[in-house]
């Protein structure tokens, strides 16, 4: 299940859906990303998130397929928000259920790391008096490449 949306999401609801997804599940790993007050700029008050409709969903579907090929993934749920988000708001959710914790942790982290460097989303940081398109980070590329 992949969703790109402006609206907020409820991690508890997503967790319930993962828990109810079928027999054989012994582990659920989830990640939630939030808007932070400092990134490229200090004093960030919010973000604007843009995406490439259609391609974004296809790329994330491909990452979930790849994860399912590498680990035991019974079900994965990925939600990414777009539009204007204020400080502290939820940006992204990745939840994976598996038979065992190792596969759940690995698949969840892989999907998140790969999403950051391959899904067509762009963040613009907003402060009181300026705005700035975030630059891609070498550390994010390193994390993504570490799964290859």
């Amino acid at each position: 299940m992949i969703r790109v949306q402006q609206e907020d999401f409820d991690p508890a609801e997503e967790y319930r859906a993962l828990r109810d997804s079928g027999s054989g599940t012994g582990a659920i790993a989830t990640f939630t990303g939030l808007v932070r007050d400092s990134g490229d700029l200090k004093g960030v008050t919010g973000l604007f998130l843009e995406h490439y409709p259609g391609m974004t969903e296809q790329v994330i579907e491909g990452l979930v397929r790849e994860a399912s090929g590498r680990w035991d993934v019974r079900e994965a749920r990925v939600i990414h928000r777009v539009g204007s988000l204020a400080l502290g708001e939820q940006i992204v959710f990745v939840g994976v259920c598996s038979a065992h914790r190792g596969d759940a942790f690995a698949a969840c982290e892989f999907i998140m790391d790969a999403l950051k460097t391959s899904a067509p989303f762009w963040k613009k940081e907003i402060t009181g008096d300026s705005e700035h398109w975030v630059e891609q980070k070498a550390a994010d590329l390193d994390r993504s490449q570490s799964w290859e």
């Binding site: 990414h80 950051k116 899904a119 989303f121 762009w122 398109w133 891609q136 994010d140």
Partner: peptide, 10 residues
């Protein structure tokens, strides 16, 4: 065809 800067989601 789409041209865009390196992606920065997540």
């Amino acid at each position: 065809v789409a041209f865009f800067p390196p992606v920065t989601g997540g």
